[in-house]
Structure formats: structure tokens, C-alpha cells
């Protein structure tokens, strides 16, 4: 076993709300290997998004520790280790597709020629070469989310955090996007942490599925998905796929 990329140890997150204290996460322990694809699945309120946000230094733990390549999440964020994709594409209306993808590079002070080169390379990877000069509102939901993925990966972050990225898409677009995500992921070395509500989505994409339960949010089980890669439409029809989906479903019922 290699040195873990992400090591989470005894993590707790408690929110203060009007109704009193809410334990979003209780004693979470998890290690994630480099280039691993890990899904976090569970019902609403199980803390899966909170866990993702804690890893990405978007919120702070109440106690416990997270180490990213031995660094704190804040240090990792300052080193630009994270690419993030949310459920909403969060594109800038006033920028073209190309300029949206260039945004992180702009912030990081990359030269103009280099920005254009990397953006066009990423847009090629997500199949949007013909739409570089279009505005986000001219694109369909699926295409907008592709732009969002291209933007997250354009600066080659080592960790890709995805919070229900396909949650707002229809089932057909969704399955196609899952396939494309695997293709893109295979070309990068990124470690993916993927938050989802969907059992087939988690099984299809992941190396491991982390099953979580609410009140308090905790890890219920971890299911290893030993389906061969590369995965495609035939993967979804394998008996093993159904067995794994059933296993995740049963773990969720606890």
C-alpha cells in the first residue's frame, strides 16, 4: 500500500443552530489513496457534503485532523491542490466559455498565451471545442457542467472534489456524463471525491463507495467496487454491478 493521499482521523463537526447543537459528523476515519475514485453516498443530512467541504478547507472541523500529503487542508488549498465542481455549474454569465475556464489560471497569474493553450486543451477534453466563444447561458445544463469540470481541472489539481455534479441533469445526460468523467479521469492523475445520492452512479464510477448515515453523520460501511476498468455501458449490465448496487443499498438501510 502506498502512502495515503488523504488521511482523516477522528473527525467531528458540530454546528450551532437555533435548535441547539447538530452533530454533522461524528468520529470519521478514512484514508484515500492517490488517483483513487471515492464516492460518498447517503441520505440528506448524513454529512457527505460537509465531509467533502472539510477536506477542501471550505469549512473547519470541530475536532480531529485531516492531512493532505502530510499538509493541512488550508496549506493544500493555498497550494491549489483542489479542483471543485458543485451541483450548479456556477459559471460567470459575463464571460465566454473559454474565459470561464481560464479564470483559475488568471487568478494564479498564468500568462495569456499559456491560459489560452490550457483552456483549449481542457475544452477539447470535455468535447466543447466548438463552443469556446459561446456564453454559458447559450449552453444546455450538461454542457455547462462540462465547462465547470474543465475549469476545475485546468490547473491540474491533484484532488477533484465533486458535490452531486450531475444531480440536476436528466438520467440520459447523466449516464453520458458519468462515462465522460471516467474518460477524463483516466487521462489525469487526479484523486476524485464524489458526493452523490445515486447508488448506480456511485457503483459505476468508484473504486470505493463510502456509505454514510445521518444523526449523527458517520461512516456506516465502505464497499470496494472490484469492477474492471475501463468501464462502459456493458459494465452496467454485469451481474457483479447489480450485486454491488444491492450491497450499497443494504448498507444504506442500516
Amino acid at each position: 500500500m502506498t502512502e495515503p493521499l488523504i488521511a482523516i482521523d477522528g473527525l467531528n463537526k458540530i454546528y450551532q443552530s437555533a435548535a441547539g447543537q447538530v452533530t454533522a459528523l461524528a468520529n470519521v476515519n478514512l484514508t484515500i489513496q492517490p488517483s483513487e475514485f471515492v464516492s460518498l453516498i447517503g441520505p440528506s443530512g448524513c454529512g457527505k457534503s460537509t465531509l467533502m467541504r472539510l477536506i477542501g478547507d471550505l469549512t473547519q472541523p470541530s475536532s480531529g485532523a485531516i492531512r493532505i500529503k502530510g499538509k493541512t487542508p488550508e496549506q493544500a488549498r493555498r497550494d491549489r491542490d483542489y479542483g471543485i465542481v458543485f451541483q450548479a455549474p456556477v459559471l460567470y454569465d459575463w464571460r465566454t466559455v473559454e474565459r470561464n475556464v481560464e479564470l483559475p489560471l488568471e487568478v494564479m497569474g498564468v500568462t495569456r498565451t499559456e491560459r489560452t493553450r490550457r483552456a483549449s486543451e481542457m475544452l477539447g477534453l470535455v468535447g466543447l471545442n466548438d463552443f469556446v466563444k459561446a456564453y454559458p447561458w447559450q449552453l444546455s445544463g450538461g454542457m455547462q457542467q462540462r465547462v465547470s469540470i474543465a475549469r476545475a481541472l485546468v490547473f491540474s489539481p491533484s484532488i477533484l472534489l465533486m458535490d452531486e455534479p450531475f444531480g440536476a441533469l436528466d438520467e440520459i445526460t447523466r449516464e453520458r456524463m458519468q462515462q465522460e468523467l471516467l474518460t477524463i479521469w483516466a487521462r489525469t492523475n487526479a484523486t476524485v471525491i464524489f458526493v452523490t445520492h445515486s447508488i448506480p452512479e456511485a457503483v459505476f464510477l468508484s473504486d470505493r463507495v463510502v456509505v454514510m448515515s445521518p444523526r449523527p453523520g458517520r461512516i456506516e460501511a465502505i464497499v470496494s467496487v472490484n469492477l474492471p476498468r475501463p468501464r462502459d455501458i456493458t459494465t452496467r449490465e454485469m451481474p457483479r454491478f447489480f450485486e454491488l448496487a444491492t450491497e450499497v443499498r443494504e448498507r444504506l438501510r442500516h
Partner: peptide, 26 residues
């Protein structure tokens, strides 16, 4: 939107960059 600010945070953008590239145009 909060998520747009979170993205800027993940790029380790300075407050000045957040203003010029996000808040002002929005």
C-alpha cells in the same frame, strides 16, 4: 452565490481578485 465564492477560495484568490473578477462584474 456562496459556491462562486467557495470556488474563488479554492483558487486561493486574494480579496482584491475576488472583488474585481467576481463581486464587481456580478
Amino acid at each position: 452565490p456562496a459556491d462562486a465564492l467557495a470556488l474563488m477560495r479554492s483558487y486561493a484568490a486574494t480579496p482584491w481578485q475576488v472583488f474585481w473578477k467576481l463581486r464587481l462584474p456580478a
